[in-house]
């Protein structure tokens, strides 16, 4: 696949997370527990935000980590960093739960093909602990105007398309597209500047 041409830097391939995931291939329960302890909070927070109920959220988190355990070979460190891969998996699973049998779910099922696609962190990205990363992203998104922030949240946490967001917010489609595009560009620039 041509996408495989975008290999991350060698130091990322040798990251502690990638090493732990490799240990899963040898059924290393200790490595699995370390990954769970490290990322269960952010995964659960994301899933709970999407599905809104603690019981179903815990089921989704359990599914995500069991998939990691049973199919760890599907994560290829050479194709991108671990955490964005895990968060993408969790988000899609949570949206599947939220959108059972709807058109949106079918669209997301198509997106499932992308689960193991390439994710490339930009050159300026540095390894940050989860707390500092969360503070940085929240601060940058908090600077967007409320409508812009709302549009991005509807897309990310509810899986809505441009058209659906326009209908939800009762705003022109072009306006919604601009909000999302400009909002994400500002986030990208902010992350660049802050690094």
């Amino acid at each position: 696949m041509f996408l495989a041409a975008f290999s991350p830097k060698d130091d990322r391939e040798a990251s502690p997370d990638a090493a732990l995931v490799r240990q899963l291939l040898q059924n290393d329960v200790g490595a699995f527990e370390k990954l769970y302890d490290k990322y269960c909070r952010i995964v659960y927070s994301l899933v709970l935000r999407i599905v809104q109920q603690s019981g179903p959220a815990e089921e989704v988190v359990q599914d995500v980590f069991l998939q990691l355990w049973r199919n760890s070979a599907q994560y290829d460190p050479a194709r991108g960093p671990f955490v964005p891969w895990l968060l993408t998996l969790a988000r899609n699973r949570a949206l599947d739960t939220l959108r059972l049998k709807s058109e949106r779910q079918r669209r997301l099922e198509n997106q499932a093909d992308e689960l193991f696609s390439v994710v490339v962190a930009p050159q300026y990205e540095k390894e940050l602990d989860e707390k500092r990363r969360a503070e940085r992203v929240r601060s940058l998104v908090g600077e967007l105007n409320p409508q812009q922030k709302r549009a991005i949240e509807l897309a990310y946490f509810q899986g809505l398309s441009h058209s659906e967001i326009a209908a939800e917010l009762k705003e022109p489609l072009g306006t919604v597209k601009s909000w999302i595009r400009n909002g994400l560009i500002r986030l990208k620039e902010g992350l660049h500047t802050a690094s």
């Binding site: 952010i42 927070s45 960093p81 993408t88």
Partner: peptide, 9 residues
């Protein structure tokens, strides 16, 4: 994809 994944935070 990386940028969008940051929205989880």
């Amino acid at each position: 994809r990386w940028l969008v994944s940051q929205l989880a935070y």
